[in-house]
Design a binder for these strands. Structure first.
Lengths: 197, 197
DNA sequence: GTCAATAGAATGAATGTTCATTCAGTGGAG
DNA sequence: CTCCACTGAATGAACATTCATTCTATTGAC
């Protein structure tokens, strides 16, 4: 390879991305504390030392994975979101995006929602999380104000719907339910009735 | 060595219980993989070796904690449960018990519901878990059959309500909501409307 | 075009640390 | 004295991290 663009370092970014993806897979399977660094290197197809070229410490790697995945999920939610559609339609859009995301990125959702991160997230990670909740909140708050949703703290309604969603996903992963289209539709209706006025 | 309790002869079960409780506290805070054995011994006020008198390995200790807490939660749920009361009243009883339990045993709930256990639970732990879900299921299934609840798999309804409950707890834990009586009541109503026909 | 010089990316054996587990020793009860 | 629950220093395995070295590809002299 001879052509090297000044503004693009393609190879380094490939390795960085490979490390991030390998780490995501292992973290979602075994948890952050249950995952050693060498297996991450092995799965990414790079040397152990290479990880430390891109990430100062294991904790920095964890935070990079978290920020990437949280931002990715938020992006999946708000891309082409029908902000001015009727509330029920907006809710359907949100529900569909969440489910599509889970189906396409199961490791992302497992990592983000099935693990308890608080203790090792840094400032930046918290900001990214805040942006995520902020976006949800702006929509839920509006629906509460317009008396579409129940008169309750919007943060509570978010916690309930998000919790129900994660509970459903967890039950599916644990083999307690089968996620067919009718089940997904039934769950959407349940969640809508939970919060609608 | 110096004797810490002159006038108390320690029954073996005291130490076992102290170890289980110390382990529960640390596991709920830092997770199972994030908790080393020596700190468990220190918090329990016993020597490291004593832990291995009562539990063959760390994994055995984890499973003992899991079984104890899962059984404890089930017990809190079904003690004096109004099995023959009207459905809404039964639901209220369930909700109240869950919330009381969380308020009285926050570490238990954090450990049981905020961590991903599957990979290290043994046969016995799965049986205890099965008993827990079996009890919930018998009640939910009956309510579906009597057309009190929506016509959906009872396992889905359980996942939604339990998920919403855990989501609310997590939000409270993370400081996103304040768990006052009105909030708890509002959440109960949300969950009831989610599943009722 | 060729190739020696150079830069810096990549590596994994080596390092120091932390962990789960063991066991030789201690002390109290009978 | 005999037991045995109990202890924590000791052990070796596994860990996160480092760094001397190798590899790769770009440069510029000819």
């Amino acid at each position: 390879m001879r052509n090297q663009n000044q503004n693009e370092k393609s190879a380094p970014q490939d390795k960085r991305a490979a490390i991030l993806f390998a780490a995501l897979e292992l973290f979602s399977e075994r948890g952050v504390h249950g995952t050693a660094v060498p297996p991450v290197a092995e799965r990414a197809g790079v040397g152990i030392g290479t990880i430390y070229r891109y990430f100062e410490t294991k904790e920095a790697l964890i935070n990079a994975v978290y920020q990437q995945q949280r931002a990715d999920l938020l992006n999946a939610l708000r891309t082409d979101f029908p902000t001015f559609a009727p509330p029920r339609e907006q809710f359907h859009a949100m529900w569909t995006r969440m489910l599509d995301y889970a189906q396409e990125n199961p490791e992302s959702l497992t990592f983000l929602e099935l693990h308890h991160h608080r203790s090792y997230l840094d400032e930046k990670s918290r900001e990214v999380e805040e942006e995520f909740f902020g976006w949800l909140n702006s929509h839920f708050q509006a629906a509460v104000r317009f008396q579409v949703f129940k008169d309750a703290p919007s943060e509570l309604l978010i916690a309930i719907v998000k919790g129900a969603y994660v509970g459903m996903m967890r039950a599916a992963w644990d083999g307690r339910i089968e996620l067919g289209p009718e089940v997904i539709k039934a769950a959407e209706d349940c969640c809508w009735e939970a919060i609608r006025r």
